[in-house]
Amino acid sequence: MVLEIIQLTVYGIVLGSIISLGAIGLSLLYGILRFAHFAHGDVMTVGAYLALAGVTGLGLPIWAASALAVGGGVGLAVLIDQTLYRRLRRTAPVILLIASVGIALILRSLVQFVWGPDTQVYTQELQMPVRLLGIRLKPTQLQIVAGAVILVVILHLFLTRTRTGKAMRAMADNPELARIVGIDTELVVVWTWVIGAALAVAAGIFLGMDTRLQPTMGWHILLPVFAAAILGGIGKPYGAIVGGMVVGIASELSTMVFPPVYKPAVAFALMVVMLLVRPTGLFGAPR
């Protein structure tokens, strides 16, 4: 029993790492552009498939393919922002919401068109689980957690040590104030897309490593990612990490009671409770 809980918690940390990476970008975008980016899950999907192209098409090792995919995903996100979202920014935020749902659909149909609707994997190699104090862990899962930690450290350095990073945090927290202080908002917006898309691509690749690749993978993880962002408080990147971990671990632990297919429902339930009790998030000021 205790062992099972520990085992599930470890799985939860793996899932939480993936969700967190998605949630950080979503939370920053939400805080800075004031709209819920519903295509975020599908940016993850695109990233995962770009890496797949690197692995199967060019025969690259997964890390090199990932670097390529991050570049591609970031380029795509900035392109979409500059051609579409930017023009709609002056209208009501909900128009951006609709536009992003449209982008989600476009990205997903593209992926499905190029790679087909069937599930795919990065490698056919059999993963031999490592046993550590009675806990099973696949090498990929270790890689996922390690990769997430490295990315979060880089993000932390960016947010605390660079001018743009500090401006980004200020803007995510209070855009009106940031504008008064004289922050170059358009520059911060572009950087937010760079960071958000890079982390989303990484999350997508990790998700593909952990399970399999599917055109709907990103859309289906969008709900937990949103739950994590709301749990952590909109516009708070560090909160998103905690939110992601809570959602990940709670989802895995719930499989002791509910069938595993209902993991997204657990995330939803957590979110609803949060909205009822403390809509500003775990670390937000009470209303």
């Binding site: 709209f35 909900v94 919401l97 709900l223 949103f226 297919v261 209902y262 997204p264 939803f268 609803v272």
Partner: peptide
């Protein structure tokens, strides 16, 4: 906030989809 409704509607649609399937 207005977008919370949007997220909640995705959630409920997802859960309904899972229930229908499972």
């Amino acid at each position: 906030r207005e977008d919370y409704l949007a997220i909640a509607t995705i959630g409920i649609a997802e859960i309904i989809r899972l229930v229908l399937k499972n």
